[in-house]
Amino acid sequence: MVSVPQDTVVARDRLLSLINELAVVRGRVTLSSGEEANYYIDLRRITLHHEASKLVGQVMLDLMDKAGFDGIQSVGGLTMGADPVATAIMHAAGDAGRGIDSFVVRKAQKSYGMGRQVEGPDVAGRKVIALEDTSTTGGSALTAVEALRKAGADVVAVAVIVDRNTGAGDRIEEEAGVPYLYAFGKDELDVD
């Protein structure tokens, strides 16, 4: 039985509530970029949460659709932040009767087995969107875009759940030459 997704506005509102409740952690932290912040957005608390992960899939699929990216065949990004996001989108698409695969991008190409950097169904010749849960500098997304292009994918955009408003989107658009999409901006979060 295919489940009918709840209204996207309701899903978006509930997901934002869960992000603010579960994922915004206050206190001094050092980000992966090396920068310091007085809060941390731990989106794995959302993407791996039983209720929120379904909402992530629905909201991100809607974001991609509203951006006009028809014919997306696969989504994913640098492991591990992107992995549950891609899986959530894959399941939301399946619930809607659509076939979107997911993939995982390793930080470096394997030196054994098939020697792949992009794991999952082959992305060569496919329209894909590179994902992240959130981005501070854009570095992870750019690594994923480079690996995907080497694997022959047609990368049409980068999408994140939360944009931290740190310039990552501008960097991605400039360096990768693709649109940068996000479901929520920093101004929508309870961080100040």
Rank of each mutant, 00 (worst) to 15 (best):
M90V: 07
M90I: 00
M90S: 12
M90A: 12
M90D: 07
H91W: 00
H91Y: 10
H91F: 13
H91D: 08
H91T: 00
A92E: 00
A92G: 02
A93C: 05
A93P: 00
A93N: 06
G94H: 11
D95S: 15
A96C: 11
A96Q: 13
A96Y: 12
A96K: 14
A96F: 10
G97T: 10
R98A: 12
R98W: 11
G99V: 15
G99P: 06
I100S: 06
D101E: 14
S102N: 08
S102R: 00
S102L: 01
S102P: 02
S102M: 05
S102A: 13
F103M: 02
F103D: 04
F103E: 02
F103P: 05
V104R: 14
V104K: 13
V105Y: 04
R106Q: 09
R106M: 09
R106G: 08
R106H: 10
K107T: 07
K107E: 07
K107H: 13
A108E: 15
A108M: 11
A108W: 06
Q109G: 13
Q109M: 15
Q109T: 15
K110M: 09
K110L: 03
S111D: 15
Y112H: 15
Y112K: 06
Y112A: 10
G113L: 14
G113V: 14
G113A: 14
M114C: 10
G115Q: 12
G115F: 14
R116G: 10
R116Y: 08
R116D: 10
R116K: 15
R116V: 01
R116L: 15
Q117A: 03
Q117D: 08
Q117S: 01
Q117P: 06
Q117G: 02
V118H: 03
E119L: 06
E119Q: 02
E119T: 09
G120N: 04
G120W: 04
P121S: 08
P121K: 06
D122F: 04
D122W: 02
D122R: 13
V123K: 09
V123S: 07
V123W: 02
A124S: 15
G125S: 06
R126Y: 02
R126A: 00
R126V: 00
R126G: 01
K127V: 02
K127A: 11
K127N: 12
K127P: 10
V128K: 03
V128H: 04
I129N: 01
I129S: 06
I129Q: 04
I129F: 10
A130P: 09
A130C: 03
A130S: 05
A130Q: 05
A130L: 02
L131C: 11
L131D: 12
L131G: 01
L131R: 07
E132T: 04
E132S: 01
E132K: 04
E132V: 05
E132L: 08
D133T: 04
D133R: 07
D133F: 04
D133E: 11
D133Y: 04
D133A: 05
T134C: 12
S135R: 09
S135P: 05
S135L: 05
T136A: 12
T137V: 01
T137P: 07
T137R: 01
T137Y: 04
T137I: 03
G138N: 08
G138P: 09
G139R: 07
G139P: 00
G139M: 09
S140W: 11
A141N: 07
L142G: 01
L142P: 09
L142D: 09
L142A: 10
L142M: 15
T143P: 07
T143L: 15
A144P: 08
V145F: 13
V145C: 12
V145R: 09
E146A: 15
